[in-house]
Design a protein around this nucleic acid. Structure first.
Lengths: 216, 216
DNA sequence: AGCCCTGATTGATCCAGGTCAACGCATCCG
DNA sequence: CGGATGCGTTGACCTGGATCAATCAGGGCT
């Protein structure tokens, strides 16, 4: 159930975890809440976001099965976490996890590796937000989801979009209209085929990879 | 010289470090290079950036004395590091650092804390890049520099801009013209006073904080 | 001193993506 | 079954910031 853990760690960790479930759109915690737990997604997807004073929102990441969230050395969560779909997670109390870290130094190493991976993803996202066009953003996003499905051993072909257009916009720094229009134009250009509103077939993935990296 | 380290770590680390110096604009390493060293800035400032295929650039961070760079679990650097000013750093060979990590589990914990701090900063930057206006970006940037100077115990008042307008633009997802125009309009509005091209006095810092957080 | 050379500023114009508005299309519910 | 409600799409128009194009201001060199 807590798939992403190394076997030797798993044994000790199962003692302190609790399974939790959440319905779609339910919040898991809010930015500024005391960070009492760390979570691992086991099923469904979660979005993480930050808000500006006037309501503008930036989604900093979507979490899928195997991903950790709530990692923070500080005492407060720095973003809000909200269920995109119905989700199942396992929850680790930070206090107990800290005790475990004392006894099991390898755990810190593992958490460091996870944090570094997130950091690499965050830097890619900065490049996307700061310097890519709407089309490049959408294509990069679709490829990121496709890679995620691959990594988790799921079927790659119809890329699944569990989140709303609003969420996609708030992740890519675009409006919902631009998201919709860009998907339509990719569809008209034959680069993708939509199956309903939440499944996408990528045609010529190699060419899409080039668009995302802005190879001229 | 390697200020930012805890005393008990410092003792063991000094054995494996080498001091290095770099002139302004000299590259320290390139994205894709084998990640053989970790660095700690002791003097001056460094910029980290990623490039798209056609030359568009996103600076993912500026590093100042006390900051670490080159941290990566993978074998390759994921960004290019280049001196903004003349810099002094201390360099740790990754191989030796890894050996030290085996013997000194607290080191992983410390690196984890550093990585988490960077992650928090990265998420703030995503919010900035995705959802803030040019003015909010510039104001946020000036405040970030001011806080950095405070944190390092430097004089706060004239905020120092060691980097070029191009660098500021590539960090904030703007063009140099927009950076220049926005600084001019802040100056005309009396929010800042420029002293030459690389020193800024912030007036009404509290009001600037509100602009950066988009309090309406 | 005078002369480049490089980076910053300012002005004029343009356009990618935002905004505003209408409409389509499910799903839900009385 | 009809009306409402909530996404998503599409169209028309607008605008913040990009682009293109002159200057301008040091700072180093002879």
């Amino acid at each position: 159930m807590c798939g992403a853990l190394a076997p030797e760690e798993l044994h000790q960790l199962v003692d302190i975890l609790t399974d939790v479930e959440l319905s779609a759109h339910a919040p898991l915690f809010h930015e500024g809440d005391p960070a009492e737990h760390v979570f691992n997604v086991t099923r469904g997807s979660i979005k993480l976001y930050k808000l500006l004073g006037d309501g503008r929102r930036q989604i900093t990441g979507f979490m899928f099965p195997g991903d950790f969230l709530g990692l923070a050395v500080n005492s407060e969560y720095v973003y809000t976490a909200e269920a995109v779909t119905d989700v199942k997670l396992c929850r680790f109390p930070r206090r107990k996890l800290d005790v475990l870290r004392e006894r099991m130094p390898k755990l810190d190493r593992r958490l460091l590796a996870l944090a570094m991976d997130e950091l690499v993803a965050a830097q890619d996202q900065m490049l996307l937000l700061g310097r890519k066009t709407a089309e490049e953003k959408i294509v990069s996003f679709l490829l990121m989801l496709a890679r995620g499905q691959e990594r988790r051993g799921e079927k790659v072909d119809p890329v699944h979009l569990p989140m709303s257009r609003t969420d996609i916009g708030d992740y890519l720094g675009l409006t919902i209209e631009t998201v919709s229009r860009t998907l339509s134009s990719l569809r008209k250009a034959g680069a993708i085929v939509m199956e309903g509103t939440d499944r996408v077939h990528l045609k010529h993935r190699d060419r899409l990879e080039e668009v995302a990296a802005a190879m001229t």
